[in-house]
């Protein structure tokens, strides 16, 4: 059984007269796989990631999403997270006054409670975050700072992937994590994300560029255009896009 099954998904901005953004997305992701979704700005790839995470600013008008045998669209954002869906944000928000460690502990324990496990004690939690911080080459002082407050763009992205490794999701959605990262940071972030690769889990990488895929090799590459997946292939498709740009797809569409 597939981990994620998206069928004919349509979504629009949840406002009177809201724009249609997703126009019939079909995608099957099995456990153990890494999928890349590429496309130029405005193609709907980030919206797809956010709809999967449960963002209420988008309204699903048609279609279905099945995750681990459950109707994902019926679950609230927090229920999805507790069920193992994780979205690494394109633009992580700054939250003054809430320290990363308090927040992460709350997040980890909410998921554990959901699974009927006891709360993680401080000792075990500290051990876990120290291990993941080392993996992401992060300064331990980050944990005591307010979430993303005063972080550079690169630090925010690194913090997202750090949180992702701590939350240990079954379905990791990475929304343009690579944008704004220099090559050294990109390698660290990619290594962090790759550590989640495993037979029970899947990763969906939303990106504009092929660059990050050199470090996290995808099993499948899909191209989105105008709210639909118009082309799928293996990692060579990403190279082709890098060389030819996205415009050739437009022409193909028109023809």
């Amino acid at each position: 059984m597939s981990l994620l099954e998206i069928k004919n998904l349509h979504a629009r901005v949840a406002a009177p007269g809201g724009r249609d953004i997703l126009n019939g997305v079909n995608l099957t992701v099995n456990a153990g796989q890494v999928h890349a979704i590429m496309g130029k700005n405005g193609s709907g790839k980030s919206t797809l990631a956010q709809v999967l995470a449960g963002r209420e600013t988008y309204e699903v008008t048609q279609g279905s999403v099945t995750y681990d045998g459950k109707d994902l669209l019926e679950l609230s954002a927090e229920e999805r997270a507790r069920e193992g869906v994780f979205l690494a944000f394109q633009y992580p928000v700054e939250i003054p006054g809430v320290s990363t460690d308090y927040f992460l502990k709350a997040a980890v324990n909410a998921a554990r409670k959901h699974r009927g496990q006891p709360e993680m004690d401080s000792v075990a939690f500290l051990k876990l975050i120290r291990e993941k911080m080392a993996l992401l080459k992060m300064d331990p002082s980050f944990m005591k700072r307010a979430i993303n407050e005063g972080f550079s763009g690169g630090e925010k992205k690194r913090n997202e992937i750090f949180q992702m490794t701590v939350c240990d999701p079954r379905l990791a959605l990475m929304d343009e994590t690579d944008s704004g990262l220099d090559i050294d940071a990109l390698k660290v972030v990619a290594a962090g994300a790759s550590s989640l690769r495993g037979p029970d889990r899947a990763i969906i990488i939303v990106t504009h560029y092929q660059r990050i895929l050199d470090y996290i090799q995808p099993d499948f590459v899909h191209v989105m255009l105008k709210g639909r997946i118009v082309k799928s292939g293996d990692k060579n498709l990403a190279r082709e896009l890098e060389e030819r740009g996205y415009d050739f797809l437009d022409e193909g569409e028109a023809a």
Partner: peptide, 23 residues
Amino acid sequence: EMIFYLRSRGVGLEASRHLLTYA
């Protein structure tokens, strides 16, 4: 935006509101 960020990590809606108000 802050509420969605916290919820997307598994913190409930009410708990997110409380936490953000406290903060």
